[in-house]
Nucleic acid binder design. Structure first.
Lengths: 106, 106
DNA sequence: TATATTTGCAACCAATCGGTTTCAAAATAA
DNA sequence: TTATTTTGAAACCGATTGGTTGCAAATATA
C-alpha cells in the first residue's frame, strides 16, 4: 500500500480537509459537517491522511481531535524547489524555446 | 474526466517524467528509455500531463518533443501559500498544541 | 516504390479508489 | 444499569487507474 503525500493531496476532498484542519484541530464529526458525503467516507480520508503522517490524533474522552502536521506539508515545498530554481532563471517562454532548440541541434 | 495538476503529480512515474523534461525537452521514446515500463504506458502519462497543461508538444518531422510548462508548476506553489503562512508563524509544535487547547475550551 | 521508425489510440485487464451500508467498541449521559 | 454518542473497521460496489498488446497513421530512409 504505497501511500505518500502526493497521493494524499490528489483528492479534492482531502485537500479541503487539510485546509479546514490547518486553522483548527477538529473531530471527524465536525469535519464531516463541511461535506455532503457520509461521516464514514470522511473517516476513510482521515485514515489516509494519518497514514502518510499529515494528521495526528489527540483523544479527548470519546472525541478524537485531528490535527494537521504542517511540517509534513513542507515536503511538497521541498519537491517544488528543483523547479523553483528553473522558473526563477527562465524569464520568458522565448528563452525556454531558444534553449530547447539549441539543445536539439547538438 | 476531472484532471487537475494534483492528480497529475500523484503518480511517481509522472513526477519522474516532469523532472526529466524540466531539464530538456524530449521525445516519448527518449523518455521511455528512462523507465522499465512500455513506451505506450509513458505515452499515456504524457497525455495526462498534456491534458492538464503541464506539457506542450513541439513536432519536428516525425518526432514530437514534449516540453514542461514550468509556469503551471506554480499552481502547486500557489496552493501551498495558505499553509506557508501558517508554518512561518508557528515556531514550535508547543505553540500549535496550546492554541488548539485554547480553541477547544471555547 | 517498399521498408523502417516514431507515435497515438483502442481494447482489454487486474488493482485501487472513493463511496455506501452495516456493525462493534468505547466513553458519556440518563 | 441502560441508552446515547462518537468513532473505526469490514464488506461490498461501480468507476477509475496504470499497465499491457495490437494496430494504424505519418514521416523518413533504402
Amino acid at each position: 500500500m504505497r501511500r505518500d503525500i502526493f497521493q494524499a493531496i490528489a483528492d479534492p476532498t482531502r485537500r479541503a480537509i487539510i485546509a479546514i484542519i490547518a486553522i483548527q484541530a477538529m473531530t471527524p464529526n465536525a469535519i464531516a459537517e463541511h461535506f455532503d458525503t457520509s461521516r464514514q467516507a470522511i473517516s476513510k480520508h482521515l485514515r489516509i491522511l494519518s497514514e502518510c503522517e499529515l494528521l495526528t490524533k489527540k483523544q479527548e474522552g470519546r472525541e478524537i481531535y485531528y490535527q494537521l502536521q504542517i511540517e509534513k506539508m513542507k515536503e511538497i515545498d521541498k519537491w517544488l524547489n528543483q523547479f523553483r530554481k528553473i522558473w526563477e532563471s527562465r524569464f520568458s517562454q522565448l528563452d525556454n524555446l531558444l534553449s530547447t532548440i539549441k539543445n536539439n541541434k547538438k
